[in-house]
Structures are given as C-alpha cells and as structure tokens.
C-alpha cells in the first residue's frame, strides 16, 4: 500500500479521531499527539488494514482505548492536565457573549461527564454515528448505548438549566 492510498483511507476520519481524542484528553496538544500515534500505528499495520471490514470503526475503538490508557497512566502519576482553550471570538454583542458563554458551559459539562458518556455523546451527537456502529466500536449492547446516551443528554440539559437559572437570579 502506498502512502497516497493510505492517506485516502485515513483522511475521511482523521478529524474524528482527533476530536474523540480531544474530548477525552481535553488538551489540544495531547489530542494531536494521540492522533499522530494512532495514525502511525495504522501505517505500521498497513498490511493488515485491508483485512479489516471497517477501518474507521476499528480506528475509533483504537483511539478510545489509547486515550483511556493514557488517562489511566496520568491518574496513576497523579498528574492531571487541565487545559481549557475555548475561545471567545466576538465580544461586541451582549447576546453573543452570553451564547458563547453557555456554549462553553456545554463543553465544561461534557468534560465532567463519566468517560463512557463522554465518548458516546461525542460519537453520536458530534460525529453522528449509528447506534449500532457505536455499540460495535465500544463493544457494548445497543440498548446500553441508548441508555448511556439518554443519561448523558439529560444530565447536560439539567446542568445547563441549573447554570442558566443561577445566572438569571
């Protein structure tokens, strides 16, 4: 397999790998490193790639496992990276600030969700994967994915309402 062929396979989902890594590792740099690592692993196993039925799903599973491992070793070292680079671009309009602010809130709320819910929200609401696909990627049952998704969505909404009413008072 040549480099061009490999890139053709990888390009459609490399951003998805990056976003999932960023969702889990939070910091952009860490996510970039993780993505690079995953792509290199794929490249080194390029002879096997043709055997996989779904390279994309396989890569997402790989990313998930890689990031969770990374987080585990971070916890073990008692070293937690807190890195929030959410940007406020426009400050001219009050409404826009508010909206931006609540968008940031969503990011923070998701950041505090349990890891599994984080992954599921990322895969479903941002990357728009089928529930069946997600179930395969995470090695879970379809119903379990649905339940976790519903829980995650509800807790995001509840916490948003909380912060919103807090601001209003």
């Amino acid at each position: 397999m040549t480099q061009a062929e490999f890139l053709n396979i990888v390009i459609p989902f490399k951003d998805k790998i990056f976003r999932l890594a960023k969702r889990l590792l939070v910091s952009r740099e860490e996510a970039e490193d993780a993505t690079q690592e995953i792509l290199l692993k794929l490249w080194n196993n390029k002879t096997k790639i043709e055997e996989y039925k779904n390279v994309e799903a396989f890569s997402m599973t790989m990313t998930k496992n890689f990031c969770l491992d990374k987080l585990k070793s971070k916890h073990a070292q008692n070293l937690k990276i807190v890195h929030s680079n959410y940007q406020d671009k426009n400050t001219s309009l009050q409404k826009q600030i508010e909206l931006n602010d609540s968008v940031n809130w969503v990011a923070k709320i998701i950041e505090n969700l349990p890891e599994q819910q984080k992954i599921i929200i990322q895969l479903r609401d941002i990357e728009q994967y089928d529930l069946d696909e997600i179930a395969k990627m995470l090695d879970m049952k379809n119903t379990a994915v649905r339940v976790a998704l519903s829980r995650a969505r509800k807790s995001i909404r509840e916490q948003l309402t909380k912060t919103h009413s807090y601001g209003a008072k």
Binding site: K14, D15, I17, F18, R19, K22, E32, T35, Q36, L39, L40, W43, L99, S102, V103, W105, V106, A107, D125, I126, E127, I156, R157, L160, T161, H164
Partner: peptide, 21 residues
C-alpha cells in the same frame, strides 16, 4: 436552554486535525 447544546455540537463538528504525520 437547548440552543447552546446544539450549537456546541455543530461547532465542534468542524474542528480539524492540522498536524502532519
């Protein structure tokens, strides 16, 4: 209350990986 949630999802879809491997 749902607006920021969906906005966040839509915005986040556009983030890309720029580093070259």
């Amino acid at each position: 209350i749902y607006k920021p949630m969906f906005t966040y999802f839509t915005v986040n879809q556009k983030e890309t990986f720029t580093k070259t491997v």
